[in-house]
Design a protein around this nucleic acid. Sequence first.
DNA 1: CTGTAGACCTGGAGGC
DNA 2: TGCCTCCAGGTCTACA
Length: 271
Amino acid sequence: MPELPEVEVTCLGLKPLLSLSVKQIVIRNYSLRWPINPKLPQILKKQTLLNLDRRGKYILAKFSDGTLIIHLGMSGRLCIVSDRDLLNKHDHVDIIFKEKNLILRYRDPRRFGSILWTEKDPYSHKLIKNMGVEPLDDKFNTEYLYQKLKNKNQCIKNSIMDSHLVVGVGNIYASESLYYAGIRPYRVSKKITKKKLSILVKSIKDVIRNAIVRGGSTMNDFFDVNGENGYFQNEHKVYGRENQPCYQCKFPINQLRLGQRSSFFCKKCQR
DNA sequence: CTGTAGACCTGGAGGC
DNA sequence: TGCCTCCAGGTCTACA
């Protein structure tokens, strides 16, 4: 679920909680990707939520004395609920606010996500400080990508999914972007021409921007009690479409595994 | 330093 | 229905 657009939408959706103060925290399961700080309940008590930010797929929730660094992993979800909402098996954390009877609830069946507390600048946190550029930032451009890839023997799909290079390009968007750019996912990064890279940069930006718009379009029902609707699959050109005809040339879409992840591409449209 | 396999964990789908 | 295997939108860490 959480691709960059969903994280962005989640972050925006949490704005109603700004300037509210914490009454209590209930943690039902401390073992996420990294254990939640056992002192978090007493640390966060009475603190006010001052700001919300996103860096890559991390949500940075700034409180009075520090910042919660939240990652949704593969299956995480944040919802604003009230105390009347029924508890799900995998609702691991509730941050209960004093005002308006609002609760920020973290659900994560696979527990690949994380909730970390830091009192320092979150941007100097070791998980954040070495991250690559934001895909929609002007810093992500042809020259940047060329410099990063000119000595890389890695295949291009793995390169663009490397968050130290550019953040937010997940498994789906990697396949989709390479399709739009006409590049086969297993091509060696350093052998791709600058001209092709400039098309790839544009493709990545377009795919992500488009997905944010689509994510944004579901914002109204995003926090529904049963807000389980997926909204990306309809527009996939190659992802999950193995053996189905390419929309452009009608040849069947290929699937292969790269770095233990499924990749999809059209052998005719991508070279 | 570079690139890849393994690890974390639950649940759903499909085969038998 | 039950059991087994495989697969899943992420990404850090260990190792070659």
